[in-house]
Write a protein that binds this DNA or RNA. Sequence first.
DNA 1: TATTGTTATACTCTATAACTATA
DNA 2: TATAGTTATAGAGTATAACAATA
Lengths: 150, 150
Amino acid sequence: MEQATYRELMHRLSEVGAVKRGLARNLPPDLPAGSAGVLGLLSQHGEMTISELTEVLAVDISVTSRHVSYVADQGWLERSPNPADGRSRLLRLTDARRDLLAGFSDHITELLAERLCDWSDDEVHELIRLMAKLHDSLVCPAHMFTHARS
Amino acid sequence: MEQATYRELMHRLSEVGAVKRGLARNLPPDLPAGSAGVLGLLSQHGEMTISELTEVLAVDISVTSRHVSYVADQGWLERSPNPADGRSRLLRLTDARRDLLAGFSDHITELLAERLCDWSDDEVHELIRLMAKLHDSLVCPAHMFTHARS
DNA sequence: TATTGTTATACTCTATAACTATA
DNA sequence: TATAGTTATAGAGTATAACAATA
């Protein structure tokens, strides 16, 4: 594989930042992207602990703790004791906010559907598959990254 | 297209952050990823202005200005007058640092080659193509993003 | 007037480290 | 001892706004 190919891959990865920032601008001002990510996962998976969220989000647990504190303070979450482990709590969306979140999600979805109207279903699925594979190849293998250059 | 598909697309986009952070950890501590991105573009394109860099990086020009100031202070850049426009300067890598930057680039390339050894050439190229298409669909069209939800 | 770039400010996201509580 | 989570701190990246210089 050409070195230029890898260089272009890195450039395309950096461009994803612009895509994400653009999508985040379609969220309400009091719901930053990181917090919305937490809510989205809870919407999909139901009750989760901070550790479980942390694994999916691929960030440090301190980051997840921060996002969760914020959305809980904003009234998005209920926290109940975890019967399986007294050190953690089970997080879930409040019923009062579930529909509101669904509305935000619908809004983003409609935007994507509109903007990606010239994409085939296969292309969308292939992009998802390849991004997942990239994550598996680069992030999941423990200790993949050397710590620093000399 | 299913709403769940778009939701997964958003999740995969957020995972890219973990990929980029992992790659950035393989840069020297005094060369943050944003600065490295500027140097990479100058390495590819030769002389560029801050406006040109800004367009490729898809960030605000104030961000590019900051990154350029940093790498210039660190001795990576020379700035010469732009004969075509007195408001800007032409930026280029110093000869003294060109090989050093190439070494960093080689290091990342080798890491990617090793980690993506089970990818076919077609898969890598298809991922690059689809990420570029995603950027075109979502970022390039001017005024694509509405400003906020009510 | 419009564009290029700079700077000050503020906000978001993240990691590290020190800590508490529970397993 | 090990794990789940919290908090304080610091650093990187970004956007907005006000500004200066040039087109």
